[in-house]
Computed example of a mutant assay.
Amino acid sequence: MCRWLAYSGSPVRLDDLLYKPANSLVMQSKHSRLGVETTNGDGFGVGWYGTEPTPGVFHSTEPAWHDRNLRELAAQASSRRVFAHIRATTGTAIQQTNCHPFRHGKWLWMHNGVLGGFPQVKRDLAMAVDPGLYPEIEGSTDSEMFFYLALTFGLEQDPRAAVAEAVGFIEDAGQRRGVEHPVQMTVAATDGETTWAFRYSSERNSRSLFVSSDVAALQAQYPEHELLGKLSDDSRLVVSEPLGDLYGAWQEVPEATCVVVRGGEQEQYPFEPAAPAVAAV
């Protein structure tokens, strides 16, 4: 399927996240350890926040390991908050508009997983998207449709509740169409200040998700580590799979959980779908 990372904290260059770690995201694009597919070469994307209220995004259909423009960008650009995603398509076209992260205003969104039976439920889901938002959908993926459903259900006001209602709606639509397991997901969303990450699947066997441990403790444990030495105490990473093998650096996110990262604070909450206010037809 896909691999992704969500970083927040002190400003870091993109290559510190994408290239330098032993199991960097670019390395995972060729040799994923925990993904469904070993290779995630169907495009990539990076989103980051700079001086403007709207985040920048860079998408490419090239494999991440092969794109010279990504290496040039990563060597120069730095940010306090970065979303990065490498794609393994589940059937939709390899094109820039299908690359994550997706953007709406100040929001970024990315997804690893699949909406089961998407061709069968696509019309039901599309008809539920707010008519004012629907024209913004540019690609053909289930992930982007999921994003716009979450926006429709109030992502900008209450992300946890909105994603719970979107998942509930998708499950209801899938079950009505005979789909056994409608949702498989790890999802990340941010408004530039807070990151919300979700691990959930209808079959209760979700794709992997990890959060980084306390940076100050890791710096004390590994005083010579180059990247750790650059990070402030409030720096946090949420990742599909660990970027390295440092003992104690990563904690697996439990099944059916929402992680909220705000500054140096990191909280976890149980996650369950909410019954949709309006059932899929």
Rank of each mutant, 00 (worst) to 15 (best):
W250E: 09
N40D: 13
F102W: 05
R262T: 11
G43V: 09
H66T: 07
D130R: 10
S78G: 11
S8V: 15
N40S: 10
P159Y: 03
F271S: 03
L228K: 01
A75N: 05
F147H: 07
D142E: 12
V278A: 15
S202V: 11
L209C: 09
V163L: 10
A128W: 01
T195W: 03
L243W: 09
T92C: 00
L218W: 12
Y19K: 00
P63M: 01
E265S: 13
R204A: 13
D124G: 04
P101C: 04
F83C: 02
F153Q: 06
D67A: 06
T92G: 02
F102L: 02
L34H: 07
E224R: 06
G35V: 12
P21T: 12
W4I: 02
H181E: 09
E72D: 13
E144F: 12
V46Q: 02
F153L: 05
Y7E: 13
H59F: 02
G47T: 12
V261S: 11
M145I: 14
D124V: 15
P11G: 13
D124A: 15
G41W: 00
G248Y: 14
V260I: 15
E252Q: 14
W109C: 09
T89S: 15
T257W: 14
E272I: 09
V129F: 03
I137T: 02
R81A: 05
Q251I: 08
E267K: 11
R87A: 04
G178T: 06
R262Y: 04
G248A: 14
Q28D: 14
T141G: 05
Q184G: 03
I86S: 00
S235E: 08
D142H: 06
V26M: 10
T194I: 12
E265A: 13
E52Y: 01
Y49V: 08
S8R: 15
R3T: 09
F102M: 05
R13K: 15
A173M: 14
G91F: 11
R160I: 15
T61K: 00
H111I: 11
E37T: 11
W48T: 01
Y19N: 05
R103G: 04
M185S: 09
P131W: 04
G264N: 12
V57S: 06
F169Y: 15
Y7M: 09
G116R: 01
V239R: 01
G264Q: 15
R236W: 03
L155G: 06
G47A: 11
K30P: 02
V163G: 04
H85Y: 08
L73I: 15
L155E: 08
Y200M: 13
K106A: 14
L5C: 10
H100F: 10
V114N: 03
V114K: 02
T38I: 13
H85Q: 04
G174V: 11
R207D: 01
L115S: 07
E226A: 07
S24E: 12
G41K: 01
G43F: 08
T92L: 07
A188G: 14
P55C: 07
G264F: 14
W107Q: 04
S143E: 12
T186Y: 08
C2N: 10
G229P: 03
G35M: 06
L149Y: 10
R80C: 12
W48M: 03
L227I: 14
Q219E: 08
H225S: 02
A93T: 14
S232R: 10
V114F: 00
